Structure formats: structure tokens, C-alpha cells
Simulated scan of single mutants.
Amino acid sequence: MYRGFKITKETIEKILEDKEYYRRGYKRDAEEIKKKIKNKLEKYLTSNSKIDVEKLREEWFPTGEYDIFLSHSHGDIEDIEALAGYLVNEKGLKVFVDSFIWGYYHELLEDLNRTYNWNKNTQTYDHSGAKWCCSNVTMILNSALQEVIDKSEVLFFYNTLNSITHDYNSKNRTESPWIFSEIETSRIIRKNMPRRVEAMCEAVREEFSDDYEKKVAEFSYWLNNNHLIKIDQDQFNEWTGNVENNDYLKFCDMVNIPHGGLENLIKAGEELDKLYEIVGEEK
């Protein structure tokens, strides 16, 4: 990961005016990906009937290199789908929405519990076995998310009342262990400068060598997001330009073709560089 930013609902207000257009585009592409993921548990069993975690993770929680990782609360999923649709179709960026794989998490747990922990006689699940499966699947998912964050160039954190639930002892707090893990990961992992940025820095150094009601257990995680730079509405609008000009998106809807067809004509790196230039360097 190279840079991290905080955005709010106000920041992406212009995009949300065309929310349904962008959501449709993103969800259509996402469903195509989901169709490729099979869910037959027996294919992950090794010769001694143990679960091959490597194979399971590769298929259920695939990781790759992305331009932007979107960290958010599931309560904001519609906004995030719209933002992802915009970034993919208008900016040509490869975007990872973290909650996209949460559905697999629950499906996989159900498969494991039905296979290993269902007692036909009592018609109940074995509690200790279900806890063991949950612990393992959670670890697999979390490690996959950490790898995606590390490989992504940018992290956008959608800072809303759904993600930052309260303030305690002058610290932001979240009730989501996933958000806590993602933001902590973005804070402590290595800073990996893209090669194109390194090349620009080298060129600058050469030219300017001296210029540089039911009781539920609720958890409260501190959320140290001071390392993320806030992008305000003016900066975001300057980067996105005229977001109302979505003729290409409407054309895709009319002819029913997948969005992102212009992806090869747009250089994602150049778009991210524009963002860095507008926001400026870290303080």
C-alpha cells in the first residue's frame, strides 16, 4: 500500500446523485466474478480428509493487486457500490470492496457446519466444533484481506456514523472488528511506492538535487486513523471532474454490455497520480 485516505458521504455527494447507475454497473460485474467461484467443500479435502486452506483461500477469498481498497461499514454498502462503480467505469481503476467476500464467509461457515458439526439425532450443531470452524474461517478471511490491502496502492476509508460509532477518551471507536483490522493493517504495513512514482521522484531529484434488547456482547475497538488523509468534497470533485457526464455508462445499460470496456484506454496510474497531486503530500 502506498497512500490512505478518509472520505465522507459529503465527499462523494455528486456521485451519489447517480447512485443507481453506478451501483448497477458494479453489481453486474461483481456477479460475473461470483459465478466463477464454486462452493463444493469436498474439493478442498486432502488425502487424509483435512481441509487444504491454501486451495480454499485461493478460490473463496481470491486476492490480487488492486488500485483501491474500499474499507467501509456494511450499513453503507449502497454508497460503496456506487463509488466502486464510478471508479471502475469512469476512472478505469481496479477496485476491491471488502464486503464483497463477506457473503462467502457465511456460506463457507454454513457448509463446514453442515458437514462436520450437524447432529442428526439432536437436530443441533455441536457448539465447540462450530466455534473451531468459525475461528479458522475468520483467520483465513482476515489474512486474505490483509494481503489485498498490502497489494493495493490506495485505501479509501468511508468515514460515516456506521463505521465510527462513537468517541471515548478522545479516541474514535468502531464496533466492527473487520474495520478495526483493516485500518490497523493499513497503519502498520510497509509503505510501497509504485515504480512510476519512484521514477518521477528520481527525475525530480536529478533536476532539483537539493529540494526535498437482547443482551449482545458488544465490543468497542479504538480506531487510530490519523495516518489517513482526509479528502474533502472540493478535492474529490476536482479529481472526478464532471461526474454527471455518464453517457458511456448509460450506453452500456442500453446495450447490456459489461462496464469497464474502456478500461484499456484509461491509465489507472495517471488517475491516481492526479489524486495525489490534488490532495498533496502527507503532513
Rank of each mutant, 00 (worst) to 15 (best):
N246C: 09
G260L: 01
F219Q: 15
F251Q: 05
W239Y: 12
N245H: 13
L223P: 04
I229S: 12
F236P: 05
D232S: 10
E238Y: 11
G260R: 02
N226H: 10
D247I: 03
G261K: 05
W239H: 09
Q233E: 14
W239S: 10
D234S: 12
K230R: 12
V255G: 07
L228G: 03
N245R: 09
N237K: 13
E263D: 08
N242I: 11
E218D: 13
D247P: 01
N242S: 12
E218P: 10
L265R: 01
Y221F: 15
N237F: 14
Y221S: 13
W239P: 07
V243R: 04
V243P: 02
E238M: 15
S220L: 14
E263G: 03
Q235C: 05
Y248I: 10
L228D: 03
N237S: 15
T240Q: 07
K250Y: 02
N264P: 00
N256R: 00
I257T: 00
G261P: 01
L265G: 00
H227T: 08
N256H: 01
E238K: 15
K230D: 14
I257M: 00
P258C: 01
T240I: 11
I229P: 06
S220G: 14
Y221P: 11
D232W: 08
I229A: 11
L265Y: 01
I229W: 08
D247N: 05
L228C: 07
G241Y: 11
A217H: 11
G260P: 01
L265V: 02
Y221R: 11
A217M: 12
M254Q: 13
L262W: 06
C252F: 03
D234I: 08
D234P: 03
D247W: 02
N225S: 11
Q235F: 04
N226C: 09
W222V: 06
I229N: 08
K230Y: 11
S220W: 14
D253W: 05
N246R: 11
F251T: 04
E238F: 10
L249C: 06
P258N: 03
G241F: 09
P258K: 01
I229G: 06
N237E: 15
A217P: 08
G241C: 10
N225V: 06
N224I: 09
G261E: 06
Y248A: 09
F236T: 04
I257D: 01
Q233L: 09
K250P: 00
N237W: 13
T240Y: 07
I257P: 00
D253Q: 07
N256F: 00
D232F: 07
D247R: 03
L223N: 05
V255Q: 08
D247G: 03
G261N: 09
T240E: 09
N237L: 13
N226A: 11
Y248G: 08
F219P: 10
F219K: 15
G260Y: 01
A217R: 12
T240L: 08
N224F: 09
D247Q: 05
H227K: 13
I257S: 00
V243S: 05
L228W: 05
N256E: 03
F251Y: 11
E218T: 15
A217S: 12
E263Y: 02
E244N: 07
N245M: 11
N264V: 02
P258D: 02
F219D: 14
H259Y: 14
V243Y: 04
